[in-house]
Design a protein around this nucleic acid. Structure first.
Lengths: 224, 224
DNA sequence: GAGTGGTCTAGACCACCTT
DNA sequence: AGGTGGTCTAGACCACTCG
């Protein structure tokens, strides 16, 4: 929290400061809720103008990590607080029962594929209540989670997340290395598992800076 | 394009300027592509500082209406340009064929409902190629389109759009007034139509300023 | 080289919240 | 009353793009 800014660097001061503050938040030095240094405090601490401080905080606000309350102060927002989930199976309208065999046949089975996988990370994580219910495992069980960023079949920037059921992982003897660079369901398909129990879930959020950079997104474009 | 800014107003200068420019864009006075006045030009035209001009343009950038190219200028972006559509029926994983009767029964039929409808607009619009294919009508046919903003069953800010098939509209003798304040599928359900041909589509985008205000969203929260 | 957007300084006044 | 964020001014230098 006492590092200095590099005035010779190519990366602008307000970005450096934003990165510093983001790290402080991520690593718990600036806990969610009350605490956040005032703009004037940050000015004198880092020896920059208020404009620069405000730009830095502006970055964090746009990312949704920080909210400012006029007259009261700025606050770290719990990133999971208003992350919304939508069950995509029933969005908008109900699907009709097929009325004729013909209409049933002509209904295309579409599939969602990621093209140009740009980054994939695999890691072991305890399940959230919601996902434990889905997988029918005990809450907090460690499961293999994969995150893949890329573009979907329609060209939309997407981040897909897949959870591997421990039972499947054990039976198939899968490990992190097997998944590297492949989208989890594809791996399973190759290994002979035709389909996985699953649910279609769609979230939308503003991309984190690195994902935004990786996908080359302009400002104001959310990720599904 | 030559209106003045009201320095006594409660609404800040940069907002007024942003609103002015947005209107100029929407009403075609600032066409997409090349044209956009430089920041210096806007300074002298409206007698404000560059900071104020930049704030105004910043608003439009965050909305995705304008993109800036360092050294070249700012450009109006076609709002429909990179609007992405995702077929939600096949997102992520394929749904397995049910293996036992039991598992089939326990699969819940979820429905997506809007609670607290805050705003609904109905209007007649020519279909886009994509939607004409969906409805099986000629391209450009005028159909009744409804947009409803509110919160979904999970509390996520949502904007839902429904297209009414001309045939149904005629047979049911529906008009704009019937839809006012109700979500289209609900109206049909009441009228005795059990279900509508449809497809589940999910989009994400940054909210327009008025929708953002209506839903009371903080910065950085996209709308599904 | 002229023009553009990007960054930064050093001030100022205001509206708002907390005590 | 004192502190906070929100707005605005009037400058400056830089990196970049284009003809």
């Amino acid at each position: 929290m006492k590092e200095k800014l590099d005035r010779e660097s190519l990366v602008p001061l307000y970005q450096q400061l934003a990165d510093l503050l983001r790290r402080d938040i991520e690593e718990g030095r600036l806990p969610a809720g009350v605490a956040f240094p005032s703009e004037r405090k940050l000015m004198s601490r880092y020896q920059v103008t208020r404009t620069t401080v405000r730009s830095a905080i502006g970055v964090l606000k746009q990312e949704g990590t920080v909210v400012a309350k006029h007259g009261a102060g700025s606050f770290v927002r719990d990133p999971k607080a208003d992350r919304h989930r939508v069950d995509a199976t029933g969005v908008g309208m109900r699907r009709p029962a097929p009325q004729t065999q013909e209409s049933q046949n002509e209904a295309p089975t579409r599939s969602f594929r990621l093209t140009g996988i740009l980054e994939s990370t695999e890691r072991r994580m305890p399940t959230t209540p919601w996902i434990s219910e889905l997988l029918q495992v005990a809450d907090g069980t460690e499961v293999l989670v994969q995150e893949v960023t890329g573009f979907d079949t329609h060209g939309a920037p997407s981040l897909c997340r897949g959870w591997l059921h421990p039972r499947v992982e054990k039976e198939m003897a899968l490990s992190e290395e097997d998944l590297e660079g492949y989208w989890l369901p594809d791996v399973l398909a190759i290994k002979g598992v035709p389909a996985v129990e699953g649910e279609d879930v769609v979230e939308a959020a503003m991309p984190t800076p690195n994902i935004k950079q990786v996908l080359g997104l302009p400002d104001g474009v959310p990720v599904l």
